[in-house]
């Protein structure tokens, strides 16, 4: 399952929820999950997305003017 997912690493949980809701509004499935231990993040949660939705996620994040830590593939 994980191999088909990526996570958006954010600076604060409010950004995670903002991204989750913007993606949901565009019909993309995503979920807030605790940050996997091997990835660093501050706020404890990240947004798990289908890897195929990565370009959409980047677009949504850019449109919202959000700074993120990055997008990492889950393996």
């Amino acid at each position: 399952m994980s191999a088909s997912h990526s996570v958006v690493l954010v600076y604060t949980v409010a950004h995670a929820i903002r991204i989750e809701r913007l993606l949901a509004a565009r019909g993309a499935a995503c979920r807030l999950i605790p940050v996997p231990r091997h990835l660093s993040s501050d706020c404890g949660v990240c947004v798990r997305i289908d890897r195929a939705d990565t370009p959409l996620a980047r677009r949504v994040i850019a449109e919202a003017g959000l700074d993120i830590e990055g997008i990492a593939e889950l393996r």
């Binding site: 604060t12 949980v13 409010a14 995670a16 999950i33 940050v35 706020c43 404890g44 949660v45």
Partner: peptide
């Protein structure tokens, strides 16, 4: 406490 932990209750508070 929202934003202080990654568990589901903390996320619910943040929501």
């Amino acid at each position: 406490n929202p934003g202080r932990s990654g568990h589901r209750r903390a996320v619910e508070a943040a929501r």
